[in-house]
Amino acid sequence: MAGRSTRSINGSDGSRTAPARAAALADLLHYECSTLLELFRKKENFTEDVADRRMVSVPPPSSQLDTRDKLWRIHSALLQCQKLLEKAVAKEEEELGGGKKGEYENKRKLVKERLPLLILSTGELLKAAEGTTSLTPSVEGLELNVPTNLFDLKLWVYRVYKEVNYWSKTATNTLKDLPSVIVKERARTTRARNRRSTRR
């Protein structure tokens, strides 16, 4: 696993583009979160089809979205995931007790630490795309009212993990497409600039 981490983030080429590095980070988060989901599912005897409803609220995907809008959508979703995850971890420790630290607790800590790094990366890409960013996470629609019933609490935590897993995978796919999109947009901008120069 350590080998995967090193390869995924750094790659063999030190000159990887920022979107490619962010995509590698998103892919690694998705891998870690998938493992976390599996550990939680086994721990609580949940089936895979439990809790499939979305928790994060962002505009639906569209082929009409430009690079900046795609980045904003991913960045906003990840910010909401972070709020949910922080609440879920705190509530789980409070209600279910810390107990001994095993593979599940270590994986949960890793996912919680990795998510802000991806948020930072997508935030930097967003700044580069629009020159500045003043995004704040929208909590509208977020289910931050945690259930008090023990079973419902476990189900809510599981839904949060599924949401982080879903959005890390979505981020991976979106970010992998960005380099080609950015190249096309730069080419279009350069052509427009050249046309303006020849008119002068």
Rank of each mutant, 00 (worst) to 15 (best):
T67D: 13
R200P: 13
E163I: 05
L36P: 12
L144Q: 04
P60M: 06
R41A: 08
K176V: 02
V56Y: 02
T17G: 07
D52K: 09
L28I: 00
P19G: 06
P59Q: 01
P116R: 01
A77L: 02
N165K: 09
D13K: 09
K42Y: 11
E32Y: 06
E105N: 09
V160K: 01
R4I: 02
K109C: 02
T189W: 10
L135C: 03
A171C: 00
S138H: 02
G131V: 04
L65E: 12
V111A: 03
S62R: 07
S63R: 15
R159D: 11
K112V: 03
T172D: 04
T132Q: 14
H75M: 02
K107P: 03
D66W: 10
E32C: 01
A20Q: 11
S134A: 12
L155S: 15
M55Q: 09
R193P: 01
A90R: 07
L153W: 07
R114S: 11
E113W: 00
L84W: 08
E140T: 11
M1N: 03
S180G: 03
N10W: 08
V50S: 00
T6R: 10
V183M: 10
S134Q: 13
R195F: 13
R21F: 05
W72C: 01
M55C: 05
C81Y: 09
F40W: 12
N173L: 12
K112E: 11
F40Y: 15
K107V: 09
E32G: 03
